[in-house]
Structure formats: structure tokens, C-alpha cells
């Protein structure tokens, strides 16, 4: 056990050492004037600003959760649309043929150019940020799902047909499960894209959110706080990404050995539990009679 802890602690210590060295280098570079501290403040100033934003004044939380809400909302809406349209396209050839060119066109048009239109339709509230997030994160989900659903292993497909499976059964028992890993890969791209969409919309029009906070801070000449806000954006991105990864781990468990073991243990426990219940029943009856 001690060995195990040690084997984890040593790399961590090394990472921290590298990090500390980088910070020290940055401080030194700023001290001798290699870095323009007006634009890129020293680490200790940034650290102070982080303390201020998170602990002292706690200004960040409100903006943080607003942006989180917008990004998640955008992801859910865009993801749902992408899934639905991809499923529709996978089931219907002509639907795919005549709809996908417009999907591609939407994809190659920089979403930013659409901001004014989106704001016009959805107003000044959160919904316009969610909408822009949804538009930009729609495509990764759509493409990945469509490709994954239309590519199934030919032999497995024949196996299903030979068992007399209906198209519906093939869809649910074969196509969907085997498409899941790729769908999740799409989700992973989409979630960070949705965040970008929300932040971009905030930049151009918003009353609150990390994008707004960042603009406000940098405009009041507080660059260290602005960078702290930028780092909060990274944190937000990490949280969202990890969220999807956790889901991926849970749902597409068969791709990771450790998860597979856990699920396998759980299923065995359930199986033995049910067996005990079944064998317990007559016992109980006997007792009652």
C-alpha cells in the first residue's frame, strides 16, 4: 500500500516541481523586463486576483454558473438536434441526401457571423447564448452519429438478420450500442465547442457571464483579474469535458478495462443476488406455512 502511494506521489511531486520552475521562470522574466507586465501580469498578481475572485469578493461564481448554464444548455439542445437529425438521416437515404448539404454549409460558415441573427431571434437573454452554442455544437454530434450509425460490421449485421431480428431490433441492439463510442467522441468535441459559442455570444452581447466579466475586468485595467477570469474559462472547459468523459466511462464501459471489471462485478453480484432471492422464495414460503 505504501509502495502504491509512493508511486503516485513521486510523479506528482515532479509535476509540481516543473510547474514551480515554470512559474519562477515567468516571475524572473517579468522582473528583468522580458515580459510586458501590463499585458501579461506576474504569476503572483494572478494568484492574488484568483484569491480575490474566488474567496475574497466571490465575484466569479455568478458569472461562472451563468456561462456553465449557457454552455450546457447549448450542448443539450445542439446535441439533441444533432442526434435526432443524424438518426433521421441514417434511416432515410433521401433525407440524408437532401439535408446534409445544408448541414455542411452551416458547418463551414463561421458561427460568429451568425451572432447578430441569433440574438435577433432569441433576444438578449440566455436563450441567444444557448442558441449560438447549439448551432456551433450541432455538427460534431450530427456527423459522428451519422457515420457511426451507418457503419456497422457487415458480419454482425448478417448474424442479426440470420436470427430474424427486425430493423428496429437491429437499430437498438446493434447499431446504437456499436455507434456509442463514436457518438461520445462527437459529444466531447461538441461540449467545448458549445462553451466557445456561449462565450462568443457573451462577448458580443450579454449582461453577465465569464465572457462579460473578462471584458469588464480587462477594461478596468485589471489584467491579472482578466487572466484569472480566462483561467476560469479553462476550468469551465475542463469541468464540462470531464463530465462527458465520466458519462462516456459509464455508458461505453466496454472500452476501458477497469470500468469493464467494475461492471462485470456488479452484474455478477446482481445475478447471484437474484439467484438467492429465487432460492430464498420457497424457503420463505416454507417458513410461512
Amino acid at each position: 500500500m505504501k509502495d502504491h502511494l509512493l508511486s503516485r506521489a513521486v510523479p506528482l511531486a515532479k509535476h509540481l516541481l516543473v510547474f514551480a520552475a515554470l512559474i519562477a521562470f515567468w516571475e524572473a522574466a517579468a522582473a528583468i523586463g522580458l515580459i510586458d507586465v501590463i499585458l501579461l501580469p506576474e504569476p503572483h498578481q494572478i494568484a492574488a486576483s484568483i484569491w480575490d475572485l474566488y474567496v475574497e469578493n466571490r465575484t466569479i461564481y455568478r458569472h461562472f454558473f451563468i456561462t456553465l448554464y449557457e454552455a450546457l444548455g447549448g450542448f443539450l439542445v445542439g446535441g439533441a438536434l444533432g442526434l435526432a437529425l443524424a438518426v433521421g438521416s441514417s434511416l432515410n437515404d433521401s433525407f440524408r441526401r437532401y439535408v446534409s448539404p445544408y448541414a455542411i454549409l452551416l458547418n463551414v460558415t463561421p458561427g460568429l457571423a451568425l451572432t447578430p441573427i441569433v440574438i435577433a431571434w432569441f433576444g438578449f437573454g440566455y436563450s441567444s447564448k444557448i442558441a449560438l452554442g447549439a448551432i456551433v455544437c450541432f455538427f460534431p454530434v450530427f456527423v459522428n452519429t451519422l457515420i457511426a450509425l451507418t457503419r456497422s460490421d457487415a458480419e454482425t449485421l448478417e448474424m442479426f438478420r440470420s436470427m430474424g431480428a427486425s430493423e428496429r431490433q437491429i437499430f437498438w441492439k446493434l447499431r446504437v450500442p456499436s455507434a456509442l463510442p463514436m457518438i461520445f467522441a462527437g459529444f466531447k468535441i461538441a461540449i467545448t465547442t458549445a462553451l466557445v459559442g456561449a462565450v462568443v455570444a457573451e462577448f458580443s452581447q450579454a449582461t453577465a457571464g465569464i465572457g462579460v466579466l473578462m471584458q469588464r475586468l480587462s477594461f478596468s485595467l485589471d489584467m491579472s483579474a482578466a487572466i484569472a477570469a480566462l483561467l476560469s474559462m479553462s476550468l469551465l472547459g475542463l469541468i464540462l469535458f470531464t463530465l462527458i468523459e465520466l458519462l462516456d466511462d459509464r455508458i461505453v464501459f466496454w472500452r476501458r478495462a477497469a470500468r469493464m471489471d467494475a461492471v462485470s462485478r456488479k452484474r455478477r453480484a446482481r445475478w447471484t443476488g437474484e439467484r438467492e432471492k429465487q432460492s430464498g422464495k420457497p424457503q420463505g414460503r416454507r417458513r410461512s406455512t
Binding site: T115, A120, F124, S204, Q205, A206, T207
Partner: peptide, 20 residues
């Protein structure tokens, strides 16, 4: 109640015209 409406031309123009 305040709301930031942004600088984008059409958005601002619509806000004026429709008195949102």
C-alpha cells in the same frame, strides 16, 4: 432593469425599432 444589447448594428437597430 438593465440589459446589455451589444454593438452589432442590426441588433441595436431592432431594439430601437421594436422598442424591446
Amino acid at each position: 432593469t438593465t440589459v446589455v444589447v451589444g454593438e452589432a448594428g442590426p441588433t441595436l437597430a431592432a431594439a430601437f425599432r421594436d422598442q424591446t
